[in-house]
Design a protein around this nucleic acid. Structure first.
Lengths: 161, 161
DNA sequence: GCGGAGTAGTTGAATCCTCGACCATTATGG
DNA sequence: CCATAATGGTCGAGGATTCAACTACTCCGC
């Protein structure tokens, strides 16, 4: 058990890492609060509405929803149940697959989203996109795209699913 | 109330933003799980141990702990209470300030941290630092450093504190 | 030194997320 | 076909986080 020596982070790397952790924490908390205060919905709930709105007929299977957000199926079930209680989405059985369930955006859900989206986008701009340089923004996208690919394909599939 | 037109994100900006949200979600979840599986502590708990270990005598006030992680005081109280229950930290009254409470790393806490740190750092490397280019890493650090500064100084102080 | 304003921290309830167990349905293989 | 495995989804319990009080102490002005 001759453990090889730990490869600690350089001080530059450590600084970058901590800046990311703190900045990211603050950013997501801020955007969450803005949506909550203005519309009473949390960021994950908002993102579900967005994904539904982008799907044909505002309709998507629970598993597709879960996969696209990298959330557990259980989490999506709970989140959608909350949204359903507020009549922002509805659930119907899938007719192709007897096991499947599809979530649909209701009229109220679409209306809420149309009011919320500009506010949210404005927040993303003010607190993120507009405060970093275009080059750094592109780098962030590249970096986390790579991270996501790495984590999704790492194990023989079936990680978050 | 002539609302000015919404400045939507360009598709590049949108892609960068979504990559960040998904990649970040996956990354933090992964690192959290690694610590949980190997040592039974969550990422926020680990970070408290780290900050304590870096402070003189392994001792820090609750508010300093909260500020350095950008967590609410209430959250730190709960987290430290959990750590105290497992004898990884102890709490003592601050003698300078009668209101203050200081958290101290116990021997067990330090021992756990010394086992956990190499594993965590290795995870940060494998899933983040080593999969992105040094330039992109630096850009991520710059970007979120800016974001954090912006959010901390935005309101007349006293935002998360 | 007294009274009010601000600071430090805790508490408990409500909410959200995770985990494991579970049911129903669909594929697979002999 | 039929047994078994795999997939899609739900549920409830327990743990974590937030929120709104609340206590206790310090600081400041007078």
């Amino acid at each position: 058990m001759s453990s090889r020596p730990v490869r600690w982070l350089s001080s530059d790397q450590q600084l970058a890492w901590r800046s990311y952790v703190v900045g990211s924490t603050l950013l997501l908390a801020k955007l969450d609060r803005e949506l909550r205060d203005a519309f009473g919905i949390a960021l994950p709930e908002y993102e579900i509405l967005v994904r539904l709105s982008e799907a044909p007929h505002g309709r998507l299977r629970m598993s597709a929803l879960a996969d696209s957000m990298c959330h557990s199926r259980s989490r999506v079930t709970h989140t959608v149940k909350r949204l359903e209680r507020r009549d922002l989405v509805a659930r119907t059985a899938s007719d192709a697959d007897g096991r499947g369930v599809e979530a649909v955006l209701t009229a109220a859900g679409r209306a809420l989203l149309e009011r919320a989206a500009p506010v949210h986008v404005e927040g993303v701009r003010r607190h993120f996109v507009d405060v970093v340089s275009p080059e750094d923004l592109a780098a962030v996208g590249r970096a986390f795209g790579t991270v996501a690919d790495d984590l999704v394909t790492e194990h023989p599939a079936a990680d978050i699913r």
